[in-house]
């Protein structure tokens, strides 16, 4: 299970190049930080660009935390700012990408990840991030805990954003969201097109050349 998540994180980390500033959501997206190249900088919406790993025990500082209230270390070149500036960065298109988890994602690039029936949470900064970041990468295990597809024709839960997702990365495939639909960019080694389609509730487009995830990663 954790291998699955690490695989996804490794694939996504390769999307980014030095100089990019990226916002990683809570949960699976956080793992991407372990694999990014030096020079890719991380934005946290509570007001900082340039954070690194969890600080060693004893060096935690209550004035340097992430959006999940976790302690962060501050790298050389970091900048802190207020929430207004933070979301000017987000909405203004200054982030190369945001990486977020999903409850559901669909072939139009709609994302639902903030509201579950019977549980009150709130959207936090997710709606702003999907609206403003240049690239919106959804990372998710391909199916939910019941084995049902999370990639659908149409989302059924309340949306975080409409037509905002650019890429979907699961342990089985990397999908590009295009005007024509979901194009398979890469697939797990040994997986057939039929098997992948059977686990996906939206029509997949298989181009002539598809990378193997082992190679992509």
């Amino acid at each position: 299970m954790s291998d699955t998540k690490e695989t996804i994180a490794r694939i996504v980390a390769r999307f980014f190049k030095p100089g990019d500033v990226v916002n990683l959501g809570i949960g699976l997206p956080t793992l991407v930080a372990n694999y990014i190249e030096d020079g890719v900088r991380l934005h946290t919406e509570n007001g900082l660009i340039g954070y690194g790993q969890t600080p060693p025990a004893g060096q935690e500082d209550d004035d340097f935390t992430g959006a999940g209230a976790q302690y962060i270390s501050v790298l050389p070149g970091a900048a802190s700012f207020d929430s207004g500036t933070s979301f000017a960065i987000v909405r203004g298109g200054h982030l190369a990408a945001t990486v977020l988890g999903a409850l559901e994602v669909d072939e139009l690039g709609n994302l639902a990840n903030w509201s579950l029936p019977g549980k009150l949470v709130g959207m936090g900064g997710a709606m702003d991030l999907v609206t403003g970041a240049k690239r919106v990468v959804v990372v998710t295990e391909h199916c939910n805990k019941k084995g049902e597809p999370k990639i659908l024709e149409r989302c059924t839960l309340p949306l975080t954003g409409a037509r905002v997702v650019t890429n979907i990365v699961t342990e089985l495939c990397v999908l590009d969201v295009t005007a024509d639909g979901l194009v398979v960019h890469a697939m797990a080694k040994g997986l057939s097109r039929e098997e992948l389609q059977a686990k996906t509730a939206a029509r997949l487009i298989f181009p002539g050349s598809i990378e193997e995830i082992a190679e992509t990663a």
């Binding site: 509570n46 007001g47 900082l48 004035d63 340097f64 802190s80 207020d82 929430s83």
Partner: peptide, 12 residues
């Protein structure tokens, strides 16, 4: 003067 991410919504 604020410090680090404790600034957040305070100036607004």
């Amino acid at each position: 003067v604020y410090r680090g991410t404790s600034r957040n919504f305070n100036p607004l």
